[in-house]
C-alpha cells in the first residue's frame, strides 16, 4: 500500500485530527509500515468466509419500552466545556 502525504492529510481530516507537517511525515512512515505488515492477510484465502463481527452469537437483545429516570440537567451539562445552564454551547454552526 503506497500512501501519499495527501492521503494522510485526507484521513486526518476525516478523523478530525489537526496534524502538523511533522506529524504527517511520521504518520506516513508509521502507517506505511503497518499497512505493509497487515498485507500478510492477502495470503489468506477467505473465499466464502463470513465476516466475524462479534465474539458471541447473540441476537434479539431487547429492552422494555418503559421510561427510566433521566439525568437531572445539571448532571447532563456538568462535563460540558461550555454551556449556559440549559444548552451545550458550540461555536456558530454555519450552514455552508
Amino acid at each position: 500500500m503506497q500512501l501519499s502525504h495527501e492521503h494522510v492529510r485526507k484521513v486526518a481530516s476525516l478523523a478530525r485530527l489537526k496534524v502538523t507537517d511533522a506529524e504527517v511525515e511520521s504518520l506516513l512512515g508509521d502507517l506505511t509500515a503497518i499497512l505493509d505488515y497487515v498485507g500478510v492477510l492477502n495470503d489468506v484465502d477467505t473465499t466464502g468466509v463470513q465476516p466475524m463481527v462479534h465474539a458471541v452469537e447473540l441476537h434479539d437483545v431487547l429492552r422494555q419500552d418503559t421510561v427510566v429516570a433521566s439525568l437531572p440537567r445539571p448532571e447532563a451539562l456538568d462535563n460540558a466545556p461550555r454551556s449556559d445552564g440549559e444548552y451545550f454551547l458550540v461555536p456558530t454552526i454555519i450552514e455552508s
Binding site: 497487515v38 492477510l41 489468506v44 468466509v49 463470513q50 466475524m52
Partner: peptide, 11 residues
C-alpha cells in the same frame, strides 16, 4: 472486512 474474515478462521 478481510480482517473480520480472518478473525473467523482464527476462531
Amino acid at each position: 472486512t478481510k480482517a473480520l474474515q480472518v478473525r473467523r478462521l482464527i476462531r
